[in-house]
C-alpha cells in the first residue's frame, strides 16, 4: 500500500519511514510541504501521514488543497499541538485521524489500517472472500482455515485486489501501490507475484483482463 509521509524532522521521519516499511507500506517520505503538495497532485496514494508544522507550507494548507481537489485519500495528521481547538480545526479541515506527538508506532499502524479499512468501506478488520481470510493487521492469510505463507509483495497485491473486489486494477496501479520512488521496479514483478498468488490460492481467484489488469470477481 503506497503511503505518503510528510515530516520535516529527520529522525522522526526516518523512524516512521522505517517502521511503516516494516508494516509493508510503500513509503514516500518528503520533508517539505510544497514538494508534498506537488506529489499529491501527480501521484496516487492510499494513505497520507502529514505533519502540520512544516517549514514552507503548513500541513493544514496541504490538507485543504487536497480536499479542494476532491481527493478523498485518508489523511492522518501528526501534530505537537494537543489543544482542543487545534484538534477540532484539524478534523474540520479534512483530516481523518489525529495523532499527537510523541506516539507509539504500533498505534499509528493500527490507526492507518483502520483508515484504510474505512476507506474501503469495511467495518470488520479482516477481508473474507471465497474461503480466503485476509488479516491486514497480522499480515496473515488463510485459505479454508489453512494458513498460507505469502511474501510481502504478494500480500500487498492480494490485499489491494481484495479491497477492490469486482473492480479491474491496472498493472500500473498495482506497481504504484507496491513501490515507493526509491525502489527499482522490475517490469515483470507484478506478473511474477500474480503467478505465485494463483499457485498458492487457486488459479481461478485472480482473473487477468488482457491489456488492462487484474480482478478478483465478486460472488454475485
Amino acid at each position: 500500500m503506497r503511503l505518503l509521509l510528510v515530516e520535516d524532522d529527520e529522525i522522526l521521519g526516518d523512524g516512521l519511514s522505517a517502521g511503516l516499511k516494516m508494516e509493508g507500506y510503500a513509503v514516500d517520505w518528503l520533508t517539505n510541504g510544497k514538494l508534498a503538495d506537488e506529489a499529491l497532485k501527480t501521484n496516487t496514494y492510499e494513505l497520507i501521514v502529514l505533519d502540520l508544522n512544516l517549514p514552507d507550507m503548513n500541513g493544514m494548507d496541504i490538507l485543504k488543497a487536497l480536499r479542494a481537489r476532491k481527493n478523498e485519500t485518508p489523511v492522518m495528521v501528526l501534530t505537537a499541538k494537543d489543544t482542543l481547538p487545534d484538534r477540532v480545526q484539524g478534523l474540520d479541515s479534512g483530516a481523518d485521524d489525529f495523532v499527537i506527538k510523541p506516539f507509539e508506532l504500533d498505534e499509528v499502524c493500527a490507526r492507518l489500517r483502520a483508515l484504510a479499512r474505512r476507506n474501503e468501506g469495511r467495518s470488520v478488520p479482516t477481508i473474507e472472500h471465497r474461503g480466503i481470510i485476509l488479516d491486514p493487521a497480522s499480515h496473515q492469510v488463510t485459505l479454508n482455515n489453512q494458513k498460507v505463507d505469502l511474501l510481502q509483495k504478494e500480500f500487498e497485491i492480494l490485499s489491494f485486489l481484495m479491497a477492490n473486489i469486482g473492480r479491474v486494477i491496472s498493472r500500473a496501479r498495482l506497481e504504484e501501490t507496491l513501490y515507493s520512488w526509491n525502489s527499482d521496479i522490475e517490469s515483470n514483478t507484478v506478473e511474477v507475484h500474480i503467478h505465485y498468488l494463483r499457485k498458492k490460492l487457486g488459479a481461478s481467484l485472480i482473473r487477468t483482463v488482457r491489456g488492462v489488469g487484474y480482478i478478483i470477481d465478486s460472488d454475485d
Partner: peptide, 26 residues
C-alpha cells in the same frame, strides 16, 4: 512543546523500529 515533542516522537519511533526489526542493519 512542538520542539520537544517532535524529537521525542522521533526517539520513540526509532526505539520501536529497533525493537521490532529483524534486520540488523535497520
Amino acid at each position: 512543546s512542538h520542539e520537544l515533542r517532535t524529537p521525542l516522537a522521533g526517539l520513540l519511533t526509532q526505539a520501536q523500529v529497533a525493537l521490532k526489526t529483524n534486520d540488523d542493519e535497520v
